[in-house]
Design a binder for these strands. Structure first.
Lengths: 284, 284
DNA sequence: ATTATTTTTGTAATTTAATTACATTTATTG
DNA sequence: CAATAAATGTAATTAAATTACAAAAATAAT
């Protein structure tokens, strides 16, 4: 709870003089942060120590600290809150909510990311003989995207959103191969079975999925993207974005691990794409 | 521009002693807001007036005002800064940078989003006889994802990452159809040509792409996702995320526009997927 | 109702912090 | 290598915040 909210909720329990101070501040919080304790005391018609005590009552160390906290609580935005879309939202409303929820999801994912697993995953990828990305439904496009990124390197990479193909590929994998399973829920039966098969071949199995979940159990390494989401009515949105950003992180780690000479190759690929574009070359 | 950003961008133009002050603050901005001018001067090994002058250089009224502004710019946890990944970054470092850059990109996109175009686009989609999503390379997976989302409704939807297929589909489109072109650069020649063809058929052409750009010129409606990015060495990451979130916004608008009875259908689809999963049903 | 006790508030003194004026040093240029 | 301008520091001044204590108000108990 920030200071301003606290102030609102505690005015009732303040003493008479302290409430006078609170009133002056609440009337113009933005102005208050530039007032000295003397000015504020005068405006509230109380003594300076009263203002000081008031600050301490609100949990601040003193008047300057109080102003600091007040200033911080006045910063507008209150972003990163996962608010649900309502039927009568205006376009601005739900657009803002979606962007904010997505950012909130990214924030949560970043905070809970397991660096150790990430390190293992990057290590495994950079030493892989072959890399595969498997996903179904909405997660298929995430897997597709991952393949697209890794296609720029010289390690063989495949992607599939077909259960039979995935099963066959899993059976034919072996030590040194990395198979990445992508799933929002981690509960898709077909994918769990395939992950189990893949593990028996001693291939490295990485899950980008919910934890805990049946799929996570089958994986050697798990990067968790569990994000609280309103999945009842709408479809997974924010969690899929989190998955994609995780893949961005993986590929960045992979690129860095492979060293600078590798980056020259990337530049070559970019140049080879130039002819298909109008002027000013850029990424795809 | 908040104080912290300003500080970052102006360190270069500061004098030697002032830069020492800046360094101390940048090393621990959160700590700085609780230091007195004397402590800070001591840490930076400069005199107190130097700190004071430093504050004025940054546009503050004095030291207390500077602290106030600094406190405010620290509220969001210092995200939203587009910092580049460096060769010797640790995993924590570049992970943080990627997440932050992505969030920064989303923030920029949200701010610059054209609500009017968005409204037109949602209107067009909800009345479409057929919806197509076209993209190439990395943007193909974005288009793929969009198709996946719209497949849950009763409007015919297609996706293609094949230039010939796209061309044929464009020729066979007509009034009432909506074709969405997705491209990071907006400079892919093949896609521009197809967009031009599509327009001649009187189909509604929506671009999710950079503006201004050759592709944007061919589109009736453009949702811009131009994001400053380090595209020289690595591949487009943040801008693709912005495109995906825009699609989330479009589909949310579409769903809301179609009304509550429509949402029951969504629930039916979800239930039909239940059998393919272990326990606790959820989105895909 | 009145006194004792606690709580609240204010006055004045003290301490701490920030700023100003001016001197000195350091860099810059002809 | 002067001469000038810019940058930095010292010391004095002013402003701000806090503390200690006393007075007043409110509450409780007899």
């Amino acid at each position: 709870m920030n200071l301003l909210e606290k102030l609102h909720s505690e005015v009732a329990s303040l003493s008479k003089s302290e409430r006078k101070v609170a009133d002056v501040i609440l009337a113009d919080p933005h102005g208050a942060i530039h007032k000295s304790i003397a000015t504020l005391a005068q405006l509230a018609d109380v003594s300076e120590p009263t203002v000081n005590r008031f600050c301490r009552t609100l949990g601040a160390k003193g008047y300057p600290d109080f102003k600091l906290q007040l200033a911080q609580s006045l910063v507008k935005g209150t972003p990163f809150v996962n608010r649900h879309v309502e039927q009568d939202d205006s376009i601005e409303d739900f657009t803002g909510k979606i962007f904010e929820s997505t950012m909130a999801a990214l924030n949560v994912t970043r905070k809970h990311i397991d660096i150790e697993t990430l390190e293992q995953a990057i290590e495994a990828l950079s030493q892989a003989k072959k890399i595969s990305f498997f996903g179904l439904g909405a997660s298929a496009s995430v897997a597709h995207d991952a393949q697209n990124k890794f296609l720029r390197f010289d390690t063989p990479v495949m992607f599939s959103d077909d259960v039979l193909m995935q099963r066959m590929a899993a059976i034919n994998s072996g030590p040194g191969d990395v198979i990445v399973f992508i799933s929002h829920t981690g509960r898709t039966k077909a994918l769990c079975e395939i992950a189990a098969i893949a593990r028996q071949t001693k291939a490295k199995v990485l899950g980008i999925t919910a934890f805990p979940s049946p799929l996570a159990d089958e994986c050697e390494m798990v990067l968790s993207t569990q994000v609280p989401e309103d999945t009842d009515v709408y479809m997974p949105m924010a969690s899929r974005i989190a998955q994609l950003v995780l893949i961005d992180v993986l590929i960045t780690g992979y690129t860095l691990r492979r060293g600078p000479d590798f980056r020259d190759k990337l530049r070559l690929i970019k140049e080879s794409l130039r002819d298909s574009r109008f002027g000013k070359v850029d990424g795809v």
